[in-house]
């Protein structure tokens, strides 16, 4: 094995996977180094789960290669599995076993010594506020707690490579913060982490983002580098009448697109300075009340729309809700 940091922990080259007529992964290439949090984002059906399944060695690809720690996943799956931890999109633990029994099962399967298991389990459960539930059946936990238990089981053997498929879906904001704290700790220990997420606001927490779209992976960069790639600028206009505002602004010259957000609209324009007054005027003409328009850093969702188009964002939002 190579030195940590020198050789990428995960190296994916020209990976392709088809299901009949559907190309779930289309010639995808990327690498993840140890100590890196790598985000996989994309609309429903983009192929995120399929990529993670191939990485975890539970699904065979049609062509291309996957190496983990310099070892070929296809040729030596068992050797790779001991180093990998995978948390599937669907909850995969035993609901008729208790929290402790689940942890113990996965620790045994990965041959974690008893003392190490006790110590790690205690730390992970404390970090996610779950100590009180150790003797509860997993099936009786809330959705968020199930996900946290899943993470605990996944991390009990101190994996070098961690693959998480939408682990925070259905998890409340407080628990999500705990979740991410655990992931940061893991990153500090030098693990390579690949995470797909339904929450675009979480994407900013990743070191690097891969934007997937119908099997392809057109963008793969740090969030700020992605932002720099976005042509034009983003203007935020808070208004209670977002729908009307979108109609009014769509035809203003210099406007590329308008996206409704929680408390107003985000307008993608060619040049913020030039556009601001035009936008204000258009809204005033229609009598749409609003507070001051201002240029903002584009959110990941804005990037999504700008880079992949509206269809992708629409699909993404439906999936996230």
């Amino acid at each position: 094995m190579s030195e940590p940091g020198a050789e990428p922990s995960i190296r994916v080259a020209a990976l392709t996977k088809r299901f009949g007529a559907v190309t779930a992964i289309d010639n995808v290439t990327f690498a993840v180094t140890s100590g890196e949090l790598f985000g996989l984002i994309g609309p429903d059906g983009a192929g995120k789960t399929t990529v993670l399944r191939v990485l975890a060695g539970v699904m065979a690809a049609d062509s291309g290669s996957v190496q983990v720690g310099g070892v070929d996943v296809v040729a030596y799956p068992e050797q790779v599995r001991a180093r990998i931890s995978y948390m599937p999109q669907r909850f995969g633990l035993y609901e008729d076993l208790t929290v402790d029994e689940n942890i113990r099962f996965f620790a045994d399967v990965f041959e974690v010594p008893r003392r190490v298991r006790e110590e790690r389990a205690a730390r992970l459960l404390a970090a996610s506020g779950m100590q009180r539930f150790r003797r509860h059946l997993a099936g009786q936990l809330s959705g968020g707690m199930k996900q946290k238990l899943g993470l605990t089981c996944a991390l009990v053997h101190a994996p070098k490579v961690v693959l998480l498929d939408e682990p925070t879906t259905g998890v409340d904001p407080v628990s999500r913060r705990e979740f991410w704290q655990i992931l940061y700790g893991l990153r500090a220990e030098g693990a390579a982490i690949v995470i797909s997420t339904a929450y675009l606001d979480e994407a900013d927490r990743c070191d690097r983002l891969a934007l997937m779209h119908s099997g392809g992976l057109p963008y793969c960069e740090a969030p700020d580098a992605l932002r720099a790639r976005m042509p034009g600028a983003m203007v935020e206009i808070p208004t209670p009448r977002a729908r009307a505002a979108r109609e009014a602004l769509a035809s203003v010259p210099g406007v590329r697109s308008v996206l409704m957000v929680g408390d107003g609209v985000h307008v993608h324009v060619d040049d913020a300075r030039k556009a601001l007054s035009d936008l204000e005027r258009a809204l005033a003409q229609q009598g749409i009340e609003h507070t001051g328009a201002r240029e903002i850093l584009p959110s990941i969702e804005d990037l999504f729309v700008a880079l992949l188009g509206n269809a992708a964002a629409a699909g993404r939002k439906a999936g996230a809700s």
């Binding site: 060695g57 068992e78 931890s85 599937p88 909850f91 995969g92 035993y94 609901e95 399967v109 990965f110």
Partner: peptide, 14 residues
């Protein structure tokens, strides 16, 4: 059926 297989497959169990 219970969806536990996918995780089990990813472990080193032969």
């Amino acid at each position: 059926e219970r969806g536990t297989m996918e995780l089990l497959l990813s472990t080193p169990v032969t």
